[in-house]
């Protein structure tokens, strides 16, 4: 990567589609499935994860030459956990409703594969600027999928999106969509749709 630098725009866009953390790499599925029962939960989870990803990417990319490779995982985890705790406390202090809805899944961002994966695969080998772009791209891809997933599940499960009534009273909400099986079904169909679109793109 260092020999032939990829354009920065590509570094950002790969997170949105070609290397989308959820649709293409199937990373970080636990929060994806657990908290997306509404659009607002999906969005806030996405934002919290992106915050932790961005901050730890910056720091780790700065420290990449200092941290000895033998203890890098321990170092990364401490750094990630710090930022996740910061995000968790922030939500609890300023957005108590969302903090209550997300429950234990905010502290669990620490073990989200996307964050540690990006540090191992990218920030520890690239400069700060590039790492920021990469983190933002990956984060946006993650937010996008969580938002779409949350919106679909909220639409069919509660007839609303962001608590706004979308479907009228004629619609009987499908309870399954806000239950865990709904998360698996919707995510499966989304991944299928992603693969299908990708195949078409290649053919054209």
């Amino acid at each position: 990567m260092a020999k032939t630098p990829t354009p920065l725009s590509k570094e950002f866009l790969k997170g949105l589609w070609n290397e989308n953390p959820i649709l293409r790499m199937l990373l970080g599925l636990c929060p994806t499935l657990a908290v997306t029962n509404s659009a607002i939960n999906g969005l806030s989870m996405g934002l919290a994860t992106t915050f932790a990803l961005l901050c730890s990417s910056i720091l780790i990319s700065l420290l990449r030459k200092i941290i000895p490779s033998q203890v890098r995982i321990a170092g990364y985890i401490v750094i990630i956990a710090t930022f996740v705790t910061v995000a968790d406390k922030f939500l609890a202090a300023y957005l108590p409703e969302i903090s209550k809805a997300l429950g234990p899944y905010v502290p669990l961002i620490v073990v989200n594969c996307i964050i540690l994966g990006r540090q191992e695969a990218f920030s520890s080998k690239n400069g700060v600027g590039r790492s920021i772009i990469d983190a933002l791209g990956m984060g946006s891809g993650f937010i996008l999928v969580l938002l779409v997933l949350g919106s679909i599940r909220e639409l069919f499960g509660s007839a609303t999106i962001f608590n706004l009534q979308i479907l009228g009273d004629w619609f009987n909400p499908w309870m399954i969509m806000i239950l865990p099986p709904g998360a698996f079904l919707t995510l499966g169909l989304l991944i299928g749709l992603g693969n299908w679109l990708n195949e078409r793109k290649v053919k054209i």
């Binding site: 170092g75 401490v78 750094i79 710090t82």
Partner: peptide, 10 residues
């Protein structure tokens, strides 16, 4: 040293 500094900062 590195780990101590990181955890201390954290």
């Amino acid at each position: 040293i590195v780990l101590t500094v990181i955890t201390g900062l954290s």
